[in-house]
Lab assay of single mutants.
Amino acid sequence: MTEYKLVVVGAGGVGKSALTIQLIQNHFVDEYDPTIEDSYRKQVVIDGETCLLDILDTAGQEEYSAMRDQYMRTGEGFLCVFAINNTKSFEDIHHYREQIKRVKDSEDVPMVLVGNKCDLPSRTVDTKQAQDLARSYGIPFIETSAKTRQGVDDAFYTLVREIRKHKEKMSKDGKKKKKKSKTKCVIM
């Protein structure tokens, strides 16, 4: 069974824990209790493949930012979460993405942009803004509501699919490099 290491990042209060708990335990946590770091595991079937999701729910508070490099190193894919009623959390996505790329030393890291709290009427981040940002990053965008469960499975499952595509691409690139290195030079 394939294991996928997913990391949920975003500013404090955007609903990272609520999304994760909704996926794992099928219930909505409405009281806000700032996370330092929590880890969850769940076995699911995605596109006919049974897999184990190892999900790291991270601290959004700035005082825990020193811990970010460590979990970013171990993560295979990242859910970059903002709240649709919090423009600052949307603007912060850029910083999370840049930090992930720096730590992973790669421009090509599996990510999904997630606009959470889409059940709320007080939207300050337009869907088109988020779609445009995701398009500019070359990553999928999904709106979710941890409260109603809308888009929750889709967000995590899409990230797994992005990781699969990335692994497939990397193995193809690896095979191309191996083929090239088999060419021999004969000096007579």
Rank of each mutant, 00 (worst) to 15 (best):
I142S: 15
I84D: 14
C80K: 02
G10L: 01
D69V: 03
T2H: 13
Y137D: 15
Q61R: 08
A134C: 14
G13C: 11
P110Y: 02
G48D: 09
A155C: 14
V103Y: 04
F141D: 02
I55N: 03
S145G: 15
K177H: 10
R73M: 11
V8S: 03
Y157T: 10
E143D: 10
D119S: 12
T183Q: 14
V112Q: 09
T58N: 00
N26F: 07
R164P: 06
Y4V: 13
D153C: 05
K165T: 15
P121A: 11
A130M: 12
I46R: 14
Y71Q: 11
V8Y: 01
V152D: 07
V152R: 12
V9P: 02
G115H: 07
D30G: 12
C118M: 12
Q25T: 07
C80I: 10
N26A: 13
A134H: 15
D154Q: 07
Q43V: 09
T2D: 14
L79G: 01
A130D: 12
Y157S: 07
K182I: 13
D132L: 05
G151F: 12
G115W: 08
V45Y: 06
T74C: 06
E76V: 12
R68M: 03
K88W: 05
V114E: 01
V125T: 09
S106T: 13
E49C: 06
R73D: 10
K178M: 12
Y32D: 01
I36G: 00
D154I: 06
A11L: 13
A11D: 08
L79A: 08
S17I: 01
D154G: 06
K184R: 06
T74Y: 11
Q22W: 08
V7W: 09
N86M: 05
H95L: 11
L159D: 01
Q43G: 11
R68W: 01
D30I: 07
M170C: 05
R135C: 14
Q131A: 08
E162C: 03
D54A: 06
E37W: 01
L159R: 01
G10A: 11
D105T: 03
L159A: 04
C185V: 14
G48A: 08
T2F: 08
K117G: 11
S39A: 15
D126W: 07
I100K: 02
L159H: 03
R73E: 12
A59Y: 00
Q22I: 08
D69W: 11
R41Y: 04
Q131H: 09
G48C: 06
H166F: 06
V9Q: 04
V14S: 09
V125L: 07
E107G: 08
L56Y: 00
F156D: 01
Q61L: 09
P34Q: 02
T158L: 09
D126L: 08
K104A: 14
D132M: 06
Q129A: 09
